[in-house]
């Protein structure tokens, strides 16, 4: 087994363990969020193994470095305890979750059943910021700009909601 393969299994295992830790840590919200961080970082490592360096850096910078910190921020600010927000016993989310993971398992098994396409080496500059930037600003410029409008609308909405509470 090559070094890359060993690293892949290590980080894949870490991702699965950390994701389980996130879901199963219902009593301790901060531990759950920290498991999510570990999952994000190991996903970033898997992206590096796939030569997707920009995605890996953004994965860690944005998800692990900013978004989960905001989760933690909110959790600590509200000081969530299970006695304040009891664990819901509703059936619907569980059923939906089982259905979604069943579908994922089905798709995975179908993939295993067929023959996998032969792996060709990544083209020159693949996954780098130059190639990705070019693709974003030429082929995908419309979705890119649309996303920026969406984010702007979200920011304005958040500011209005926060301001109403202060006034």
């Amino acid at each position: 087994m090559s070094a890359g393969a060993v690293l892949f299994y290590v980080f894949a295992g870490m991702t699965i363990l950390a994701s389980l830790g996130m879901v199963l840590n219902v009593r301790n919200t901060v531990a759950s969020a920290m498991s999510l961080v570990v999952a994000m970082i190991s996903l970033g490592a898997i992206y590096v193994l796939l030569d997707a360096y920009l995605v890996a850096a953004i994965q860690i910078m944005v998800y692990a470095g900013a978004i989960v910190v905001l989760f933690l921020f909110v959790v600590m600010l509200l000081n969530l305890r299970t006695d304040v927000f009891p664990v819901t016993r509703s059936r619907l989310p569980k059923l939906l979750g089982i259905a979604a993971s069943g579908w994922g398992l089905f798709a995975f098994l179908k993939l295993l059943h067929g023959t996998l396409p032969a792996v060709s080496p990544a083209p020159e500059g693949f996954g780098g910021f130059r190639e990705l930037g070019k693709a974003l600003f030429t082929s995908y410029v419309l979705p890119f700009e649309a996303t920026s409008f969406l984010l702007l609308a979200a920011i304005v909405g958040a500011v209005i909601l926060a301001k109403r509470r202060i006034d």
């Binding site: 901060v30 920290m34 961080v37 970082i41 970033g44 360096y53 920009l54 890996a56 850096a57 953004i58 860690i60 910078m61 692990a64 470095g65 900013a66 910190v69 933690l72 921020f73 600590m76 780098g128 910021f129």
Partner: peptide, 26 residues
């Protein structure tokens, strides 16, 4: 000697926040 050197610096630096956050909370 990686092409995305500065992105690596930013990514690693953003992890440092957890030291502060977890220290105070725990």
């Amino acid at each position: 000697d990686v092409d995305w050197g500065m992105l690596y610096v930013f990514a690693v630096g953003s992890i440092a926040t957890y030291g502060t956050v977890i220290a105070g909370w725990s």
